[in-house]
């Protein structure tokens, strides 16, 4: 009961902040709303007893990525003048079409899943020999999902090397 109330309150808050992100004319304000939005999502993770995910959500998204957004938004002069030669309605129509596709997809999911039993929780979590949030995620990452995990880390390494190469271009 309490969880339901908390969930719907938070969801309303998160959706409201999301709307605020895209409707605020000031870009820095909308980045601040985005931070609050991510913090709200982190609280939802806590309610779902996924503390590790919640903390990582705050650390990576709210604390890391959005800081970069803020840097870019503050340092790049965001004026609308460069779009003067374009037809503004074309972008809006494109956005409307995209939004329509997403809406159809969501509706499809709702229709498909209506009246079905929710899927059983992932069995691996129950059979893993360790307790606790962090331990279970670590266990799964290094057993069942070892190859995706390693591929992701190689991808990050490549991105890092790429960034260094781009930044150091004048040396060659």
């Amino acid at each position: 009961m309490v969880e339901t109330i908390v969930f719907y309150t938070l969801s309303g808050l998160i959706l409201g902040l999301g709307v605020a992100v895209i409707t605020t004319p000031n870009t820095v304000h909308s980045v601040v709303f985005l931070v609050m939005n991510f913090l709200g999502v982190a609280v939802i993770y806590v309610v779902l007893e996924a503390e590790f995910l919640a903390v990582i959500q705050v650390l990576v998204y709210a604390g890391g990525i959005v800081v970069l957004y803020l840097f870019v938004v503050m340092l790049v002069n965001l004026t609308r003048e460069s779009e003067a030669h374009q037809d503004p309605r074309r972008l809006s129509l494109f956005g409307l079409a995209l939004a329509g596709v997403v809406l159809l997809e969501l509706a499809g999911i709702v229709v498909y899943s209506y009246g079905r039993e929710p899927p059983a929780p992932v069995a691996a979590a129950a059979t893993s020999p360790v307790q606790g949030n962090v331990e279970q995620i670590g266990w799964l990452l290094y057993t069942d999902y070892l190859i995706p995990f390693e591929v992701a880390s190689v991808l990050l390494l490549v991105a890092m090397v790429g960034a260094i190469v781009l930044a150091k271009r004048e040396l060659s």
Partner: peptide
């Protein structure tokens, strides 16, 4: 909480917003 140290790291990383936004 079982992620106490990570909690400290992540919450202190939020503090940087106060500084950036104050300057801006």
């Amino acid at each position: 909480i079982n992620v106490g140290l990570l909690f400290i790291i992540s919450v202190t990383s939020i503090g940087v917003y106060g500084i950036i936004l104050a300057g801006w």
